[in-house]
């Protein structure tokens, strides 16, 4: 029971940081989502030691473990957009796959190139 309470308090803390992120976004008229600003903010607070890991650990672990649960409601919304994938819409799938291969290739290649000369890894 206490564990559930801890998880709830931790998530409430994350929620406050999310609201601060959203507030910063609106105040500065940024296009970067408030949630991502909150992510950066929490990362900095953890690095500087202002926020201690045990303030967020349990809640964060649970939330990340069950992340897909959180966005199920939105993905179900696709039911209103099925018509987009008829006929020419199939090309959208091909575009996404093509672009994904390009990302994988360019990012992996760049990082491997820059790894040259570094110590041998244990594969």
């Amino acid at each position: 029971m206490i564990r559930i309470l801890v998880v709830i308090i931790h998530i409430a803390f994350l929620y406050i940081i999310f609201r601060i992120g959203t507030w910063i976004q609106e105040a500065l008229h940024l296009f970067v989502p408030g949630s991502v600003i909150g992510l950066l903010l929490l990362f900095l607070l953890l690095l500087t030691g202002i926020v201690k890991v045990n303030w967020i650990k349990e809640g964060t672990e649970q939330l990340i473990k069950h992340l897909p649960l959180v966005f199920i409601p939105v993905t179900v919304g696709i039911m209103d957009y099925f018509s987009l994938f008829h006929g020419k819409g199939i090309l959208l799938v091909i575009i996404v796959l093509l672009s994904t291969i390009l990302v994988k290739l360019s990012s992996g290649f760049t990082s491997q190139y820059l790894m040259k000369g570094r110590e041998r890894e244990h594969e």
Binding site: R19, L39, L41, T60, E61, V70
Partner: peptide
């Protein structure tokens, strides 16, 4: 359930840390 979306993005700071 949707309300948890924002906090779960913020939570990603933890694995990065």
């Amino acid at each position: 359930v949707n309300e948890l979306l924002g906090p779960s993005v913020v939570a990603l700071a933890y694995p990065l840390y």
